[in-house]
Nucleic acid binder design. Structure first.
Lengths: 185, 185
DNA sequence: GAGCTAAGCGGACCGTGGTCCGTATGGCTT
DNA sequence: AAGCCATACGGACCACGGTCCGCTTAGCTC
């Protein structure tokens, strides 16, 4: 990547972050970001592909931390704790991660529906599948993982907390319950 | 509703159905429907609110039939069979319903993500909640229903069958497994 | 440092969903 | 039959995501 491209990339990310901070995620239009970074609109698209790509780039740092925490962090989230315990912690961590970035993720989702195969989800599926197997769950663990991870969804989280008035605590308890039901033999 | 409005409504629905049949769901743009019905674009929006509304109207008949089948149809889907058996049948019926209208539903979904509260989903949640209680499942049945219904999602179905190459049979088996795990005590 | 070329840039342009508002008319009242 | 007005119409208009392509420039080569 050429120097000017790298510079523009960081300028765009900074401008985008500033926009979100000052005016909310809804004002994060591609044109506004371009203008705020004093750059052409085409440049934004070349750097990030599309709106979802830009948002993913914005969340990248947080996503890495989150991912590391369950892949190699301390127990009970990371390795060292029994698999079911890790699964419980994973769901809670994920719900909180989603809640923290809810605003941004929701404005990205329209595109992401089609992108149910985007990288973060893949990682979650793989992780849950591994934990289920480790826990000795038999049957179609891959599909079971898909079902479980579907519960850990921003849109669902948003719907249940905002529209249906459920607390995050309740969702977390729901996850514990779900894991317990699925893993007991 | 005035007579001309009613006439335009049916003309629009016919035009939309024709468009989908002839050129696929992707060509179902609001402007194309308006043109095909020889009507102004504004009229389409007034009648159906937005694109999702139009698509829901298009699927309304099928949705009613589907809904009736599990609310008052013959067992094991309808009343008469034991609740767990009905739950199993419900999932299979829903997966097939979704698969049948996949194309149309997918092009509507972008909007529908925000609309996790749209009527059909409500009905499904209510139904599953009732069956879980009837089956003697204790705990947060409402939330458990949300988790189960999240598995019955067009976008997920599409992803798993097209992108991951799973068969519909496998998804149905996965539902049976899920129900078994959740309801056993 | 001149010349070359791939990489990058930017903004005009397009399609689509959705809004708005001035105009037309169905159909009720008298 | 005439008058009235709520209802409905239609298309110009807007915002935004995304594409395209002719122009610019970083930075390597000689």
């Amino acid at each position: 990547m050429r120097a000017d491209a790298a510079r523009n990339r960081t300028r765009l990310l900074e401008a985008a972050a500033r926009l979100v901070a000052e005016r909310g995620a809804e004002c994060l239009t591609m044109e506004a970001v371009a203008a705020a970074a004093s750059v052409g609109k085409g440049t934004v698209f070349r750097r990030f592909g599309d709106r979802t790509g830009l948002i993913m780039a914005l969340l990248d740092r947080s996503e890495r931390l989150y991912q590391e925490s369950f892949l190699s962090g301390p127990p009970p989230l990371g390795p060292g704790a029994p698999p079911v315990r890790r699964l419980e912690a994973f769901g809670v961590a994920t719900l909180r991660h989603l809640a923290a970035h809810r605003e941004l993720l929701l404005t990205a989702e329209p595109e992401a529906c089609r992108r149910l195969d985007f990288a973060p989800r893949h990682a979650r599926i793989a992780h849950v599948t591994a934990l289920l197997r480790e826990a000795g769950v038999d049957g179609d663990t891959e599909l079971l993982a898909e079902a479980l991870v579907s519960y850990l969804d921003v849109a669902l989280l948003h719907h249940l907390t905002e529209r249906r008035g459920m607390s995050l605590d309740r969702l977390e308890a729901g996850w514990h319950d779900l894991v317990a039901r699925v893993t007991r033999d």
